[in-house]
Amino acid sequence: MGFSDADLTAIWLTVKLASVVTILLLIIGTPIAWWLTRTRSKWKGPVNAVVALPLILPPSVLGFYLLVAMGPNGPLGALTQSLGLGTLPFTFAGLVVASIIYSLPFVVQPIHNAMEALGRQPLEVAATLRAGPWDTFFHVVLPLAKPGFISAAVLGFAHTVGEFGVVLMIGGNIPGETKVISEQIYDHDEALDYAQAHWLAGAMVVFAFVVLAVLYSFNRRGSQTGVVGGY
């Protein structure tokens, strides 16, 4: 026994999805986190709430609205169609968009917390050393907030690997295109093929445990050396 070809396809697709989503989320999440750290705008609260929404909404609610938005009559769908890209539901790109929204808080919050914990002083020190805002961001904020970025990347990746509901609604379970591990397990389960399901499900448990164990031990080491981190 072992992984079937379909299992391996699902694993490969999941890793690809999680990697793309993590990279895009770091790019999207960093400016959001920085804005949340620095702003005195009255929109800070509402924006924070929107970022955190996926934490508490049932995936089916998220999936439903994403489906509507990305469909032929939704605003996202209208945009992608006018760009000649067709519609996103039931495509890999659609999964990426849905996963970015679904995993957003897991990336933004650790980065935001790490940046917040820096306080005002390093920024003021940098300013008195003639560092402009971009210089300060790249040479002071990014290195000092590094533990937050590592937490964000690990959590964003792991959480994308673990999603099911949103993927099911947006992706439609197409092998090689949208069928990720969690759905492959669901299929095995539906087919009463428990042995096959065990292989994948067990692998997921091990993966999740290893990721979290590494993350927690990393964070403990970080806090011992006085490096700001955590989430």
Partner: peptide, 18 residues
């Protein structure tokens, strides 16, 4: 501040820990 030709020593040193 980053355009003013000054040096500043803070109460706590403010050295970059990294």
């Amino acid at each position: 501040p980053h355009r003013r030709p000054l040096g500043y020593v803070f109460q706590e040193s403010g050295l970059f820990p990294h």
